[in-house]
């Protein structure tokens, strides 16, 4: 399947928007004292990255469910690796980039 330039651009913009929305969920749900721009797409969220813990993970599970209607299950811990991994998971579950 070959995408036209316009389609590729549209998908890229949708993807960026999705990532921004995930960051907004992260910041709001976890009460992070930082702006969207300081949270990068590939920054590690747990451990040495943002230093999130398992309580934050539960918070994110609820946040993602509310915002995107996507469930995250016990075995899916790796989706919290980064904003991009979470975005990939959401796209995978929804079968496409959610149109915002």
């Amino acid at each position: 399947m070959t995408l036209s330039y316009e389609e590729t651009e549209r998908l890229a913009i949708q993807r960026m928007e999705l990532n921004r929305r995930i960051k907004a969920v992260l910041i709001e749900r976890l009460g992070l004292d930082m702006s969207l721009d300081h949270l990068t797409d590939d920054q590690s969220l747990f451990g040495r990255g943002l230093g999130l813990d398992s309580i934050d993970a539960l918070e994110l599970v609820v946040g993602v469910e509310d915002m995107f209607n996507v469930s995250i299950y016990d075995g899916d811990m790796e989706v919290f690796g980064s904003v991009n991994k979470l975005a990939d998971y959401i796209i995978d579950q929804l079968g496409g980039v959610p149109v915002l």
């Binding site: 398992s54 993970a57 539960l58 918070e59 599970v61 609820v62 995250i72 016990d74």
Partner: peptide, 10 residues
């Protein structure tokens, strides 16, 4: 119980 992930529940 609202939501459960791993051993934690909200």
């Amino acid at each position: 119980i609202l939501s459960t992930f791993g051993i934690l529940s909200q």
